[in-house]
Simulated scan of single mutants.
Amino acid sequence: MFIRKLKIDEEPPIDLLLLADPSRVIVEEYLQRGECFVAESDNQLIGVYVLLPTRPETVELVNIAIIETQQGKGLGKQLVMNAIEMAKLKGFRTIEVGTGNSSIGQLALYQKCGFRIVSVDTDFFTRHYPEEIFENGIQCRDMIRLSQDL
């Protein structure tokens, strides 16, 4: 897998980004302010992540997705680790990520990659998303915030 920054003249992979965040409006908003990185294998786009500076010395991993046919192969962990390294190279001192309370696999993944749970934004998804979101048979209501010092 080869990971690179999205070129200025390239269209971001919206369909792939929408796998991780169902709001096109929110995705397009953070794409304008953040940096998008894509993962390719055999000339096929298989993954994406977006880094968004949020405060001095702090960056947030606001989206990370792998195409469905390639999920469960450890590629998500490679993308997270690449995002951490990219954040270090860019001089950030902290990287943050948020995920839904119902995102059991993602919560495990982020903790395996060194993130620690730091807070819960109660009712984030019910406040910011018009449609109810269900995952793993659980309604996604709260944003679980995780952080890692770099």
Rank of each mutant, 00 (worst) to 15 (best):
K77L: 07
R141S: 10
T99D: 10
G47C: 08
L107D: 03
I84H: 06
T94C: 07
L150Y: 05
M81I: 12
E85I: 02
E132V: 12
V59Y: 06
E28W: 01
R145C: 13
E132K: 14
L146S: 13
Q106G: 11
L51C: 05
Q70H: 15
N43M: 10
V38G: 00
E40S: 05
C113H: 01
R141A: 11
D42W: 09
T69N: 14
L146M: 15
L61V: 01
E11I: 04
D123I: 10
E29P: 01
C140P: 02
R93V: 07
R4T: 10
E131R: 12
K73N: 13
V48L: 01
E85G: 06
S23G: 09
L109N: 06
G137N: 04
M86T: 15
G47I: 03
V80I: 14
I46E: 12
Q71T: 08
G105F: 04
N136V: 03
Q148L: 15
M81T: 13
G76F: 04
Q44Y: 13
D15G: 09
N63C: 02
L16C: 01
E131M: 09
A83R: 08
L19K: 02
L6T: 00
M143V: 04
S41I: 11
I3S: 02
T69W: 11
L52H: 10
C113A: 14
F92A: 09
C140S: 07
Y30F: 15
R141E: 10
L17V: 01
I14S: 00
E40Y: 13
G76P: 03
L16N: 01
P53W: 11
S147N: 12
V120S: 03
S147K: 15
L51D: 07
T126S: 13
E11K: 13
N82M: 04
E135F: 02
I133Q: 11
Q32T: 08
K73A: 08
L45P: 07
F92E: 06
D123K: 13
E96P: 01
I3F: 03
G34F: 00
P130A: 05
F125D: 01
L6V: 00
A65H: 03
E29M: 08
F125M: 04
Q32E: 15
V118K: 11
V38N: 00
Q70C: 12
T122K: 15
K77P: 11
G100R: 05
F92T: 07
I66S: 11
F134D: 06
D123C: 08
E96G: 03
E68G: 04
G76Y: 06
V50P: 00
P22G: 08
C140L: 03
G91L: 06
Y49G: 00
E40P: 09
E28M: 10
G105Y: 06
E68M: 10
E60K: 13
L79R: 03
G34P: 01
I26T: 14
K90P: 01
L52A: 06
R33F: 10
G74K: 06
L109C: 07
E131W: 05
Q139L: 10
T122G: 02
K90G: 01
L146Q: 14
V25W: 05
F37W: 13
D21W: 04
I26M: 15
T126R: 14
K73V: 03
E29A: 14
S102T: 01
F124R: 03
I144C: 07
S102G: 12
G114Q: 03
D149A: 12
P22L: 09
V38F: 00
I66C: 08
S23W: 08
E85V: 07
